[in-house]
Computed example of a mutant assay.
Amino acid sequence: MASSSTFDDDLPMEEGMPELIDDDDVPSVLPSLLEQNLDTAPKGAAKGDGFTLVKRKRKSHADIEMEDISTPDEGKTEETAGEESSSGPKSAKRSKGQKGEFRNVAVPKHRYTPLKENWASIFTPIVKNLGLQIRFNLKKRQVEIRNPEDREDTTDLQKAADFVRAFILGFEVNDAIALIRLDHLFLETFEIADVKHSLKGDHVSRAIGRIAGKDGRTKLVIENTTKTRIVVANTKIHVLGAYQNLRLARNAVCSLIMGANPSKVYGNLRNMASRGAERL
Results as ranks from 00 to 15, higher is better:
59 K>V: 14
111 R>K: 05
101 E>V: 01
75 G>I: 15
142 Q>T: 01
57 K>T: 04
133 Q>W: 02
127 V>T: 12
72 P>C: 07
138 L>I: 03
118 N>W: 08
129 N>P: 02
92 A>K: 13
89 P>Y: 05
127 V>I: 05
58 R>H: 04
131 G>Q: 00
35 E>P: 06
128 K>D: 08
39 D>H: 13
73 D>V: 14
101 E>R: 04
93 K>T: 08
134 I>F: 00
51 F>R: 01
139 K>E: 03
74 E>W: 11
106 A>P: 03
71 T>H: 08
114 P>W: 00
130 L>F: 06
139 K>Y: 08
110 H>F: 04
24 D>W: 02
70 S>E: 13
33 L>P: 07
135 R>V: 00
35 E>I: 05
32 S>H: 09
78 E>M: 11
124 T>W: 02
109 K>G: 08
136 F>P: 02
73 D>K: 13
96 K>T: 04
36 Q>F: 08
129 N>C: 06
106 A>Y: 13
139 K>I: 06
98 Q>G: 13
89 P>Q: 04
92 A>F: 04
98 Q>N: 13
112 Y>K: 10
87 S>H: 05
108 P>I: 01
87 S>Q: 11
112 Y>S: 03
143 V>T: 02
31 P>M: 03
94 R>Y: 12
130 L>T: 01
136 F>N: 02
111 R>H: 02
126 I>E: 07
101 E>A: 06
89 P>T: 06
90 K>H: 03
137 N>E: 01
75 G>C: 15
41 A>S: 15
60 S>V: 11
124 T>P: 01
70 S>N: 09
135 R>W: 10
118 N>I: 01
130 L>G: 00
129 N>E: 13
105 V>M: 00
112 Y>I: 07
59 K>H: 10
114 P>K: 02
29 V>L: 08
101 E>P: 07
